[in-house]
């Protein structure tokens, strides 16, 4: 929900999940099960992933907070997904 939590999440996935992944690979971000997403958290994770990986596919974005957050990031944080 917060920026510090998002920053921590990004550091963790940088160390363990995406460290050795080819930046040209297709990256799928699955929001299945997400109940509450905020622009603060997502700006530290989704926006940064999008800056590193040009090929990103967003899955299961039906949740209202996911949709609203992505809309906000596209408008105010230059998210290009």
């Amino acid at each position: 929900m917060s920026r510090p939590a998002g920053r921590e999440a990004y550091l963790a996935l940088s160390a363990y999940l995406i460290k050795d992944v080819d930046r040209q690979e297709l990256l799928e971000i699955d929001f299945d099960g997400v109940k509450v997403l905020t622009p603060s958290w997502a700006d530290e994770v989704i926006t940064k992933l999008a800056q590193e990986f040009p090929n990103i596919k967003l899955l299961n974005t039906q949740n209202s907070t996911v949709q609203a957050t992505l809309k906000t990031l596209r408008k105010y944080s230059d998210l290009k997904i």
Partner: peptide, 20 residues
């Protein structure tokens, strides 16, 4: 549920702003 989650997200942004 949908409105509750959205309201929580808004609360999160307002409250976290205070700390940020």
């Amino acid at each position: 549920d949908s409105d509750a989650y959205m309201i929580l997200a808004m609360i999160g942004e307002i409250g976290n702003n205070s700390f940020d």
